[in-house]
Design a protein around this nucleic acid. Structure first.
Lengths: 339, 339
DNA sequence: GACTCGACCGGTGGACT
DNA sequence: AAGTCGACCGGTGGACT
């Protein structure tokens, strides 16, 4: 499972493990797809033994856009090898898979950061390989975090403890009388304070070695363990991943951040909701301006401490930079949690 | 310029007027595009003598999705005719053009509705072909409207009279001190009260016969005439056009509606801002739920008259339905304007 | 005329039913 | 297991510089 394409490794794959699935004889109804980019196999192939930022210096410091592009690159190499001129995939296929890979790999980087952070918080000291500067916040098991890559169709409200969900439900019940609602969807990822009942579990301190299928399942299913167990103030960070930007594709995070702020800050008394957007191709400066928008809820209330809805549009240069930045964030934000 | 593909009509086109432009020998830098879908030529070809809703009964009552799909259909027929097996366009090319065509054609339908409405408002009576039921609002030249298809990169605030723009500018100046902003972008289309200085101009009462290139320019440039001349309460309707929906593509209109409501209702004392979304393929019911969201500004203020940010997600069955619905809207909303 | 900038949406791989 | 449902984004034609 090499980061760099290997004809030997490819040859040893069972056909079901290959990155390219030939479905010309088993087409999906109402589609003309001939070859599928098997996203999970691609992740296992390219990142099966590699988590960027926690791998070799060469990968940790490599241009992150190139790192994220590698699975599709490898898959296309494989497809061309087996199918030559017959091989073709729609640009929309690459687009879908590249977007999911950016999200999943970045989540894995942050998962490993959280594991390392948590290990420090329970008093195990600061792991030294690869080297990141040691956070200065005084360790406490209560300051552990969980990194949750949230699935499609998720509703972030389901993370909250029942009492908080009830407050929101009552608020919505009032709206429904007028035919109104305030539906919530989700960021791609949430960082939450690790609930007390998990603070002795080792799994939250274990760095994964790569995105094998079992590890993919571990990370993508982690959110289920925390549903109904998070206090409003414990949603420490929300992240939206967008591999590239277009002016019309900026608004789901911007809107969802506004709703989160209205509900968490306004109705549940939580501190500032930190919501950020990660991208590898901002395509101009317009997005940075769009994301300077003040949080509408705070504005309307005429509060003194108005803030942006989106705290930052971040373009990670390398996986190591992403990790360093996340450690710095935790070092600052987790001070809010009583040690 | 037939609505139905005609090999004779195609044969008579100059190459620059054709719907398919062969650019294999003049490629765009950094692109692999071989054939371009000449969007404006396509509109002139298929709709050069037809505005749906103001054409024959067959077209007015035809499934609007099929009407909107016709230009691409005709262009593909042309391309196949001239280039046979060489002809290919990316699905993203069709997607872009289909989206713009939905926007431009729907704007043209509404333009003609406005022309007919205005003609009634200045006392010329109600035109009878094709037949729509006569609005009941008492006519007044002050109740005329302008339909503005707004361009890419537009800022709806530029429509407002200088005094109102200044109010917004002052508000933003306060935000900028804290590193905040509240940038505005635009709906695809705005319906505004026709300013007094234009109420005798015939052009606002003239129905166009088709989307010839000059008429395309007339409609797409109309907004320039009204910039700086609209009172906050005179933005009667904002529309976003989305040929098809995806769950992630719902939020630009939802967010922009919220911002418009904060600024126009909250800061400038305008009545309820009516913002709607038109689509031909909602793809499930989720979008209808998303658009039940209450306007965040009203919520935060704890106002009594909270309303939805998006008034409706509308799926026009035919062009005649779109026209009828717009007449009904004008009949109701323009009552707010003193006759 | 070459280049940059907006905003268009449909084809996709996987989760869930 | 066949069908439905989420949310991914890159290639595009035109306006502008």
């Amino acid at each position: 499972m090499p980061f760099t394409y290997s004809i030997e490794a490819t040859r040893n794959l069972a056909t079901t493990e290959r990155c390219i699935q030939d479905i010309r004889n088993a087409p999906v109804r109402n589609r003309s797809t001939q070859f599928q980019l098997a996203q999970q196999n691609m992740l296992a192939y390219t990142f099966g033994e590699v988590i960027p930022g926690f791998a070799s210096a060469g990968i940790n410091g490599m241009n992150y856009r190139d790192v994220i592009g590698r699975p599709v690159e490898n898959a296309v190499t494989e497809g061309t090898h087996f199918f030559r001129d017959d091989f073709r995939v729609d640009s929309n296929a690459k687009a879908k898979v590249a977007g999911d890979i950016f999200e999943i790999v970045s989540s894995a980087v942050m998962w490993n950061c959280a594991a390392r952070w948590n290990s420090l918080m329970v008093g195990e000291g600061w792991r030294s390989q690869p080297r990141y500067s040691r956070p200065t916040l005084s360790p406490s098991p209560r300051r552990q975090v969980a990194v949750l890559n949230l699935p499609r169709s998720f509703d972030w409200v389901s993370l909250l403890v029942p009492e908080s969900q009830e407050v929101i439900e009552e608020f919505r019940a009032g709206l429904r009388k007028d035919g109104l609602g305030l539906p919530t969807s989700t960021p791609d990822l949430a960082v939450v304070v690790l609930p007390e009942e998990f603070q002795n579990d080792e799994m939250w301190r274990e760095e994964i070695a790569g995105l094998t299928r079992p590890n993919q399942i571990l990370l993508s299913g982690a959110y289920q363990r925390l549903q109904g167990r998070v206090q409003p103030g414990e949603i420490s960070l929300a992240v939206a991943f967008k591999r590239s930007l277009r002016s019309d594709r900026l608004y789901q995070p911007l809107y969802e951040a506004n709703v989160m702020q209205l509900l968490l800050e306004g109705k549940l008394g939580a501190p500032k909701v930190e919501f950020e957007v990660h991208t590898l191709a901002p395509e101009g400066t317009n997005a940075f301006v769009t994301y300077e928008a003040a949080s509408l809820y705070g504005l309307a209330e005429g509060r003194s401490a108005v803030h942006r809805a989106i705290r930052e549009l971040y373009v990670p240069p390398t996986a190591a930079d992403l990790a360093r930045r996340f450690f710095a964030f935790l070092n600052e934000r987790m001070e809010l949690v009583n040690g």
